[in-house]
Nucleic acid binder design. Structure first.
Lengths: 240, 240
DNA sequence: AAGCAAAATTATGAATTCAAAATTCAATTA
DNA sequence: TAATTGAATTTTGAATTCATAATTTTGCTT
């Protein structure tokens, strides 16, 4: 009995678990706010009223304001001193700055992935790719978009580089809503599928340089589609 | 007189300046905290006591805590719920994740810079380069380091891509202290100067692809030197 | 009725307060 | 004396309060 307790204690001390962190309220709130922005419930340029959100989440202003500061540092919202916070509107210029950076990160992602990806991981992505192709033939935009995201995220995960993933995700967050709403035309969609097939092929061949180039150019072509969406959105005054 | 006032008002309204934002206290505090970390006054792993900093800055805990949340989202400090904040210690693994990302960003930076850099901007960088070379021959490490930073930042600015710059600076911030303290040996230093000469040449030739490759490999070689510093630092328990 | 000015209201920025958790320290026991 | 328990203190997380800036409303003037 005593021995068992001693064993147990030894185990506690020798095994270094990562500390169990009960999450801080402002982090929970920040995550929920991100969802509100991605889902489109919080509209760009619209003022974010602290009181409303406090009531909604049943919290005081302190953790909410902390969360707003974090989102501001991520570029998702803009703080106007004494005049509140508002969801940052993505301009065409922003997109033109964001995509080359995301392109560079995706290229790196592909390069690193090729160096370490396992056969089973490739098989997984391949399965996702065909699932996506199916949605494409069925004109199922939402589902296509969802799996598309998953494939890119899967490649990112494969690299095992958490910093790369977090930086990429942060940037992608800024344009997620626009991409989601992007009403890409059929021609561009077909073209995107061709590009994805090439991407898969390069990944299977573990050709890092090739894959990097494909991902980069894929992103740059997507930029054009997104820019078109932004222009339309702006002129309709229901911007992004 | 009245006319003058009207003129003045018209000017105010017609010219759309970016709003003069009296900076929020937490932003000021966040910036000062960054300096404290970069300068080494705040030691990694050491607990950051809220009270001490509040006394130091003569502010209440509210804006300080907001600033801490922002720094945490930048990765400069780590928040342990109910156990305070501490400066994030850069591990060798962190460096191995950070440098490839920074390399990709620098490569992009070089590529974009070549596409738009003016002759006078090149001349400016060239002047800085020779200034740096002088410090190198004189073994003036701090000055060399300082100009080295400036050159890379100047190339970044040249691209005009503010998002690229801010992402890069955020990542660079995490390793600035280590790089600053990095006691690179003479051989590596000499090698770095050779690489810089090549970088300048590629920039003058506006050879974006070449420059991208050079910057990337330059970063990866720097990684090795930084990793060595981290290892030494850790074993001496005065880590980074 | 339109335009303007002043008062009233509301929202924001930051300090203070309060409750809960962690840490310190002293007393006790083996 | 070393280890452990439990109270006292400190520190943190979050709500509340307070002062000030921004916005809205009201009432006046033309």
């Amino acid at each position: 009995m005593v021995a068992a307790i001693i064993e147990y204690n030894k185990d506690i001390n020798s095994t270094k678990d990562k500390p169990i962190r009960r999450l801080l309220l402002h982090e929970e709130i920040a995550q929920r706010l991100r969802w509100l922005i991605f889902s489109g419930e919080l509209i760009p340029e619209a003022r974010v009223q602290e009181k409303d959100l406090c009531d909604r989440f049943n919290i005081s202003r302190t953790p909410l304001r902390e969360a707003l500061k974090v989102l501001a540092s991520e570029g998702l919202i803009t703080l106007l001193p004494n005049r509140g916070a508002r969801v940052t509107r993505l301009t065409s210029e922003d997109a033109e700055e964001l995509f080359p950076v995301m392109g560079a990160l995706e290229a790196l992602s592909g390069e690193l992935a090729c160096a370490s990806i396992t056969d089973s991981q490739i098989a997984e992505i391949k399965a996702m790719h065909y699932q996506m192709a199916l949605h494409h033939t069925r004109y199922e935009r939402q589902e296509y978009f969802s799996i598309n995201q998953k494939i890119h995220r899967k490649i990112l995960e494969t690299t095992g580089n958490t910093i790369l993933a977090s930086v990429y995700n942060s940037l992608a967050g800024r344009i997620r809503r626009v991409r989601y709403l992007a009403n890409i035309d059929r021609a561009r969609w077909d073209q995107a599928m061709v590009e994805h097939a090439q991407i898969l092929a390069a990944l299977e061949a573990r050709d890092g340089v090739k894959l990097a180039g494909l991902l980069k150019s894929h992103l740059m072509r997507t930029l054009a589609a997104v820019k078109a969406t932004i222009e339309v959105g702006s002129s309709e005054k229901n911007g992004f």
